[in-house]
Computed example of a mutant assay.
Amino acid sequence: MLSYYLSIEVTQGKEALTLRQSAYTSKLLERSGMAKYKPCVTPMEEWLKLTKASTTTKVDATLYRSIVGGLRYLVHTRPDIAFVVGYVIRFMEDHWATVKRLLCYVKGTVDQVIILPKTSKSGLQLTMFSDADMAGDIDERRSTFGLLVFLGLAPISWLSLK
């Protein structure tokens, strides 16, 4: 029985399949030096607008890219951080404070899982979500659009086991 695949912990039950990345998340927090920081309740400050013309002190580009790449992989089981990860990927190493806040949020939500039901009486369902940010890029006044599509037997559940 499958229980661990590519850093994704899999639990198979009668009704559903549960996916989580708790161990991977803990290793990422250790590697970033954020394991002892206090968790926060949101992944990003509200209305935060990042720019390429940052005045913050630059951090090690290799560390920044490594941690952001690790967060990008974590999105597979953590759709709640997808927006912030996509946002900080646009920048090289200018916004470490934003990445650190995201890591604090991840620390406080390590036990969250995705539950994929095995059966459904309703047949296939198409579920779509979309969002847009018109001219939200401060530097080039470009717009951002995102679309998330699920095709499955039942809607995906998102749970915290705390």
Rank of each mutant, 00 (worst) to 15 (best):
S54C: 12
K58C: 03
V110E: 02
V75Y: 12
D133I: 02
G33W: 13
L50Q: 09
L17W: 10
P79I: 14
G69R: 04
R20W: 01
R101V: 09
T55V: 15
G108R: 02
R78Y: 02
L28Q: 05
R101P: 10
Q125M: 15
C104A: 07
R141Y: 11
D111W: 10
R72K: 00
V75Q: 11
T109Y: 08
I114C: 02
W158D: 05
M134Q: 05
R90Q: 15
T62I: 02
T25L: 09
I115C: 03
L28T: 02
L28P: 02
I115E: 02
T51C: 12
V99K: 02
A23S: 10
T42S: 10
I81Q: 05
L19H: 14
Y73R: 01
R142P: 11
L17V: 11
L147S: 07
K27F: 10
P155M: 10
T18N: 01
W96L: 02
M34N: 08
Q125P: 03
D111I: 08
L50D: 07
T127Y: 05
K162I: 08
L124Q: 01
L19R: 13
P79S: 04
R78F: 06
S122E: 14
T51R: 11
A53Q: 11
A35R: 14
V41T: 11
T62K: 00
Y105D: 07
I138C: 12
L151N: 03
L124P: 01
A16N: 05
D60L: 04
A23L: 11
L74Q: 00
L116D: 03
T56V: 04
R142E: 12
V85D: 00
S32H: 09
L29M: 06
M128A: 15
S66H: 05
V41D: 10
H95T: 07
K162D: 05
T119Y: 14
G86S: 00
Q125H: 04
V99F: 11
G146L: 04
T77G: 04
Y37F: 07
R72P: 01
L29G: 03
A35S: 12
L148E: 02
L71D: 02
P43M: 10
T25G: 11
I138D: 13
P43V: 13
A35K: 14
T55H: 10
V113Q: 04
S26F: 04
R78D: 08
D80E: 12
L124V: 04
E30G: 06
I89T: 06
T25R: 08
K52W: 09
T42W: 13
I81D: 07
A97E: 15
K118H: 03
W47I: 00
Y87N: 06
K107E: 08
L50P: 12
A132C: 09
D94E: 15
Q112C: 05
W96Q: 08
L159A: 01
H95Q: 02
K107R: 04
